[in-house]
């Protein structure tokens, strides 16, 4: 059995907790509750007939008042960067956290999730910027914790990545 620590990194209110709840419990709560510190969830899945237990560290959102602690990222086997498609600034926060994660855990599997895909008509992201990220090797995925689109695939692909380290 593989056990792996996976961090959810992103700005506040981008939907990290909602993505985890959607993946782990299959539910979506339309009520925002800010995460204080860290919530840890466990989810067991199978990758190529091998059991993989993901320990999902749902870390509080980064903002001007609280910075994601380095110690929370230490030891991660992979991470998901989450940005809110309707708030371009959250993409920058996600990329800053990406830099910090690389400095702490090095080159481990990760993906950039552009969440709230159910609100694409309100998205305000620079496509050129996204293309540049893709060109730089960043896996960019669209997800919606609300309707569940892309959520399971994002977590399962990451699980596959960490299990093949």
């Amino acid at each position: 059995m593989i056990r792996a620590k996976v961090c959810m990194l992103g700005a506040y209110a981008v939907g990290k907790t909602s993505l985890v709840q959607r993946y782990v419990q299959g539910i979506f709560r339309d009520v925002y509750q800010t995460t204080v510190g860290v919530h840890i969830h466990k989810h067991e899945t199978t990758v190529e007939e091998r059991e993989v237990t993901l320990m999902l560290w749902d870390i509080h959102g980064e903002d001007d008042l609280q910075e994601v602690r380095r110690s929370y990222i230490v030891g991660s086997a992979g991470y998901l960067l989450v940005a809110d498609g309707t708030r371009p600034a959250t993409l920058e926060v996600a990329l800053q956290l990406h830099e910090r994660a690389i400095s702490v855990v090095g080159d481990v599997p990760f993906a950039l999730l552009l969440n709230k895909a159910d609100l694409t008509e309100r998205w305000d992201l620079d496509d050129d910027r996204l293309d540049a990220l893709r060109a730089a090797g960043v896996l960019v995925r669209r997800t919606s914790a609300k309707d569940g689109s892309g959520v399971v695939a994002a977590f399962e692909d990451l699980a596959a990545g960490v299990s093949q380290r």
């Binding site: 840890i40 969830h41 466990k42 320990m55 560290w57 380095r70 110690s71 929370y72 030891g75």
Partner: peptide, 19 residues
């Protein structure tokens, strides 16, 4: 209770206290 979660939370608390 789930020892996986206990382990992770203990580490998180420990990290938090250490930080």
């Amino acid at each position: 209770r789930d020892p996986d979660l206990v382990s992770a939370m203990l580490t998180a608390i420990s990290d938090f206290v250490a930080d």
